[in-house]
Design a protein around this nucleic acid. Structure first.
Length: 614
DNA sequence: AAAAAAT
């Protein structure tokens, strides 16, 4: 049995070494966490000594790409060849960049995104939980993966099997990635084969790398027409769209790491920041453009950006973008500007859910695509202890303070455990932040009424532990990967259970454990049933009073279960192909489920499986 | 009803 709230916090913060015996909450089957660097040794990375012998000097692209030129990369050469050599496949010394124009854009003073420590990852200290390799790979072992479509390339088990080139391999090593996550195991070969992809997957499990690696590799090895110069229009080769500014920044940060010293230039553009600065950055050269839709449309209309050289298009969090009303902008970008047509570009569509609107998008944007569904890390909320407390509106603040005090007393804050507090409104966020601050709790806030600068500052301050309490609206609910959030408080519960799932997904990231506390009262009654069901399915302790409320409320189950309408959600390939591959070590994740065992992915609330939270 | 995103 779980003992006290304080213990829960401790468990949540302790990095999961003591998951057993806590009874209902934590996954009883979670193995003890072993840092990846202590497993799978020696590292699976190919290419022994010489290629990794040291970081190339800043003046070099890392030796260039020496693998076989990707003959099969474009699916049997069916793709048009733009004819001219753009990026050199890599004779060392003969940088493709040099050929392209005389000025070494893209590698002048490239900041090392890895900091100083660079490649020595074996020192024990290098493996504090700080590293993003704190991913619990064991949690990935039995993740269900299913693919369908024509001629699905087989997944790989190691990075060594994938021919990404030395420079990229070096960065993979710098990132301390030991082995590919499931989404990477499948997505990378699919993408390298030049195929379009519809993927139901979550971030925080390697999705960004999954679509960045092949794009970067493709740009390094591909042949591209000389891009027009002498104009102020820029011609990126790849476009990555994402719904929020912070997500775009996050993707940009990651992509820069992967592209370090490859000569591939990644630039991000988004609203709320001075456009001129972004334009200047673009003019210094861009291969991969990461963007939010609004700002990109703006730039397209001003003819600052042309899409006619796009060879790779990735849409991240597609369902969220539609939710936010971006469909017109997205369709404009993809269909009504100068984007190459279907089949002349490679498109990857990522979405947590697969309702009709996304299916339409898939059939409009994708050509002969492969459909991929990746289950979540652990079964959704396995790694998250969920608590619900009945708190009257007027008592919420003092109750929150009690929680925070208890946390402090536990020394959790001393360890820089972070607490993310969700509220319903922007005003509410501000006022709660002030109140916390005035009461001695270092807090900051993120919501849509703050300037972009303030938002980014808030996120930085939170991540760094300077203000270990972040009060947020739903702008922060999805996709953001903030390490070390050990506690999510639903100060105001959302109206939609999906939003709840996304919010609590900000903790328990990457195989770590987390705690989620919800303040429930009469205002949240519509959530009683879906919440009780969700918690039940996640093997959480459901308070008796919540069960009573749940049974009393008869409405609210339909929509939240996504039973009909959007179809068997979760990632059913509605084209109904029959060639399924099953991955994830062959474990039938859904064994024992009397239903099809297939329609319950992601947002379908099958046993233990809830909506993918990203 | 609120939130997000272009100005």
């Amino acid at each position: 049995m779980r003992t006290s709230w304080a213990d829960s916090v401790e468990n949540a913060a302790s990095g999961s070494s003591d998951n057993h015996g806590t009874g209902g909450g934590l996954a009883p089957t979670m193995p003890t966490y072993i840092p990846p660097h202590l497993r799978n040794r020696p590292p699976i990375l190919e290419s022994p000594a010489p290629s990794f012998s040291g970081p190339p000097s800043g003046n070099d692209r890392g030796g260039g790409y020496t693998g076989p030129a990707g003959g099969s990369r474009w699916a049997g050469g069916s793709r048009p060849d733009f004819g001219r050599q753009g990026y050199s496949t890599g004779g060392r010394g003969s940088s493709g960049w040099g050929n392209r124009g005389g000025w070494d854009r893209g590698r002048d003073r490239e900041v090392n995104p890895f900091g100083n420590d660079d490649i020595d990852d074996d020192a024990e200290h290098a493996f504090s939980e700080q590293e993003n390799s704190g991913i619990n790979f064991d949690a990935y072992e039995d993740i269900p993966v299913e693919t369908s479509g024509n001629n699905v390339p087989p997944p790989v088990n190691t990075f060594a099997e994938i021919d990404l080139g030395e420079a990229l391999n070096l960065n993979i090593r710098r990132c301390k990635y030991v082995k590919p996550t499931p989404v990477q195991r499948y997505t990378i070969p699919i993408s390298l084969a030049g195929r379009d992809l519809m993927a139901c997957a979550q971030t925080g499990s390697g999705k960004t790398a999954a679509f960045c690696f092949p794009i970067i590799s493709g740009i390094m090895t591909g042949n591209f027409a000389q891009r027009p110069r002498g104009t102020r229009t820029v011609y990126p080769l790849a476009l990555i769209l994402s719904p929020t500014r912070e997500l775009s920044c996050q993707i940009h940060e990651e992509a820069k790491k992967f592209a370090y010293q490859t000569g591939v230039k990644v630039v991000v553009v988004y609203g709320g920041a001075p456009i001129n600065q972004q334009l200047r950055e673009l003019e210094r050269g861009v291969d991969i453009l990461v963007a939010t839709p609004g700002r990109l449309v703006d730039m397209l209309e001003r003819a600052k950006v042309s899409l006619q050289m796009i060879r790779y298009l990735a849409l991240d969090e597609a369902d969220r973008m539609l939710d936010m009303g971006f469909e017109p902008q997205i369709r404009k970008i993809v269909e009504q500007m100068d984007m190459p047509r279907l089949g002349e570009r490679q498109t990857m569509l990522f979405s947590a859910t697969f309702p009709k609107e996304i299916q339409r998008l898939a059939s409009d944007f994708l050509s002969n695509y492969i459909f991929l569904t990746v289950g979540r890390v652990g079964s959704s909320t396995d790694l998250i202890v969920q608590r619900v407390e009945y708190v009257q509106e007027s008592d919420k603040r003092s109750h929150l303070m009690d929680l925070l005090h208890a946390q402090k007393a536990n020394g959790v804050q001393g360890k820089q455990a972070l607490t993310l507090v969700f509220v319903e409104t922007k005003k509410g966020a501000d006022s709660l932040e002030h109140w916390l601050y005035n009461n001695g709790f270092p807090a900051t806030t993120i919501h849509g009424d703050r300037t972009q600068q303030e938002r980014e500052q808030a996120l930085r301050s939170f991540k760094s532990g300077n203000t270990p309490i972040l009060v947020a609206t739903d702008v922060a609910a999805r996709g953001l990967d903030i390490p070390h959030v050990s506690h999510v408080v639903n100060f105001d519960l959302p109206n939609d259970i999906d939003d709840y799932v996304h919010r609590i997904g900000r903790t328990g990231r990457a195989g770590k454990t987390g705690l989620a506390t919800a303040f429930f009262n009469d205002n949240s009654m519509s959530l009683a049933k879906p919440l009780a069901d969700l918690m039940q399915e996640a093997n959480q302790d459901v308070p008796a009073w919540l069960t009573r409320y749940a049974s009393r409320v008869s409405y609210g189950g339909g929509k939240n279960r996504r039973s009909g309408g959007g179809g068997r959600f979760g990632g059913r390939d509605y084209r109904r192909d029959t060639s399924f591959n099953r991955g994830g070590g062959g474990t039938d994740y859904y064994g024992g489920n009397s239903s099809s065992g297939y329609g319950n992915y992601g947002g379908g609330y099958g046993p233990g499986v809830t909506s993918a939270w990203d």
